[in-house]
Amino acid sequence: MTTHAISPVEYRKKLSANRLGLWLFIVSDAFIFGGLLVSRFYLLGTSERPEVNQVVGLVVTSVLLLSSFFMNRAETAIAHNDRKTFLFSTLITLVLGTIFLIGVVGVEWPISHFDGGAASSLFFTMTGFHAFHVLTGVIFLLVVYRNGRNGHYSAEQHWAVEACAVYWHFVDVVWIFFYPALYLIGLPAL
């Protein structure tokens, strides 16, 4: 939101509106992921799943969960004006997010054989949609990090950090649903 000087009362009003807006956006976005989950179970049932590499899956999942921890740390830090921790944690989150992307798009995709079937299509589409959101999250983190370095956030005013954190956690929660759906439930088709 605008960073020019406004009164605390106005700021609180705007913050309240921004928060609601962000949550509504997340509710809306959740419907896409919900639709994908429904499609996965409609087409494959609970007995079948795509063929995946479990090691890579476990690694990227851990990386993503860890990144959420650091994101939370960053937000808490700036809420207490601890700029150093905030910046460092944001950077870690960013790096972990990037590692996630490399893990999925750079490592797992090339080794997953795409055979044009439903399971394979679902795997690439679901991880792709999710990875796209991780990418936008990483870009958001970059912006927050850069602005943070330039001293833009304070304990009283750090909406961008809060928004970034909420978005990042949302992307994480989506993965918490996608991971079992793609990696754990059912067996790969023969």
């Binding site: 605008t2 960073t3 406004i6």
Partner: peptide, 9 residues
């Protein structure tokens, strides 16, 4: 805003 600049209301 992404660049950290202010904008008029």
């Amino acid at each position: 805003w992404a660049k950290g600049e202010a904008t008029p209301e």
